[in-house]
Each structure stands twice: as structure tokens, then as C-alpha cells.
Amino acid sequence: MIAQALLDGLVNGAVIGLGAVGVTLTYSILRFANFAHGELVSWGAYFAFLLNLALGSALLSLGAPIGPFSFGWSLPIALVGAVLLSATLALLVDWLLFGPLRRKGSAVIILVMASFGAALALRNLLEFLFSSAPLYFTNALQIAMRLPGGIRATPDQLLAIGIGLGLAVALHLFLTRTPTGRAMRAVAENPQLAGVAGIDVRRIVRTVWVLGAGLAAVAGTFSGLLVQIRPQMGLDLLLPLFAAAILGGIGSVPGAMIAGLIVGLGEAFAVRLVGAEWRAGVAFVVLVAVLLLRPQGLFGARRAA
């Protein structure tokens, strides 16, 4: 039973971790808590759903399941499209809203508030377009495999864990090994100084949005594949995302991924021990504990407040 909760937690945690990596990037480089990040997750899932539906009905062969998975080649292709569309959406919102506010030199908290308004508009637009009824990528039932230790897992779940960890490692390498990654970290440290040193800060801002929104689309697609797609899915994920980003230490990509797994495991064990109805409280408990005990997070540098 414990092993099963461990696996459920890792699957859920992979989705939270992918979202939290995006939150931690925007938080450290754009310097505000983006309340609209959950909506990028939802929009990503809907983009993938629509593209998958269109591809699957245009070319029936694309809808045929690949190997043990529940989806055909149409889904990976749709996912790529969803990543691009979500990134475009994030750039559009930045161009319309956050960019002008940054140029006016608005305080951090004005940006937070603007993100809150944007979240409201984006989420309810989804509900207007698709209604609040849940959607599913496939109606087929997937048979869980038996793993050693009496654990049951579907191939889709294992794939989510694998891709989540793989993307986190890839992003970490990108940030630490490439010139663009180093430039991003420089902007996180000090945007003025980075600009003086010849870094195009606006290009870095765009890169952050593309990466954050792309990862959010992946998280949304997996969440939709493993559970369901709803307009509220991003709102429900928002507190776990923030809790994980703060627990991991703002700015730390491996930290956000590991903390996402911790929050996911916490939720899975809470479901077993306390009851499923209290699941949403776990992220808050984690958040309060971090703020009380270690506000800089597990892997965060203690920055001048």
C-alpha cells in the first residue's frame, strides 16, 4: 500500500514539478509571483486536446495507440503544437499586459495583481468556450501493469514520471551549460547589470515565457491524460505549484522539480491517511511549514529580502 502511494505521489508530483519549474523561472527572472501560471497549464491541455482531436480525425492511423500507451502519434504531435501555442499565448499576454507595466516601472505587487486579473480572464474564457464539463483524451480504459512490490501503474503514468524528470534535467543543463542559460541566470541576479554587460534582457524575458509556458503545456497535457481536462485544473494546481516553487527555493530548477515530487507524495499519502477530501490542504501545510522553518527553500540562496 505504501509503495502504491509512493508511485501515485511520483506521478502527481511530476506534473506539479513541471508546473513549478515554470513558476520558479518567471518568479526569479521576471520577479513576480505569476497567478496566471495555472491558466497556462489549462490552456496547454485544451490546445493539446483540440490538436489531438483534429489530427486523430484527419488521419485515423495517427489515433491508433502506440505500443502499451493509451494514445497514438497524434498526441505527441499535438503536444508539440500545444507547447508552441501556449508559448505564443504567454508572449501575447506579456506584450499586452506585463510588458507595458514593466516599462511603466510598476511595483512588483501591481504585476502580481495584473497576473491575477489575467488568470481570471483566461480561466473563464476557457469555461465560456468549452463549458465546465470535463474532457478526456481517450475513453479507452488502460490496463495497469503489475510492477515488483505489488505496485500497479499504467504505462502512461510511468511515461509522465520519465518525461517530467527528463525535462527537468534538460532544463537544468540548459541553464548551467549554455550561453542563453547563463544569461538568464545573470538577469535573475541583476537585470540592470546584465543589461550593461550586453545581455538583451528583452530576449531573455521572451525565453522565460516560452520555457515556462511550454513546460506548463506539457504538465497540462499529462494532467489531462492521467486525470481529465477541466477549465479549473490550473486553479486547483496553483497552490501546489507555488508551494513547490517556494519549497524548492525560488530560482532553483532541480529544487522545484524535487519539491514538486515532495508535494505530490504528500498529497498521495494524505489521500491514504486522512482522506481524499483533504488533499488540497497539503500544499498549504507545506507552504506554511516552509515559510516558518526555511523561507529561502531547500535549495535557495538566502537573498537580501
Binding site: P100, A114, F116, L120, L122, N124, L125, E127, F128, S132
Partner: peptide, 19 residues
């Protein structure tokens, strides 16, 4: 759905006023 549109408009309005 129309109620959702109403809330979406509030969100847009909030952003517009901030800007």
C-alpha cells in the same frame, strides 16, 4: 457559460484599469 464570460470581462477590466 455566459456567467463565465461575465467573470472573464471583469478580469479584462481589472487589467485595463491597472494599465
Amino acid at each position: 457559460r455566459a456567467a463565465a464570460l461575465q467573470i472573464a470581462l471583469i478580469g479584462v477590466g481589472l487589467c485595463a484599469i491597472l494599465l
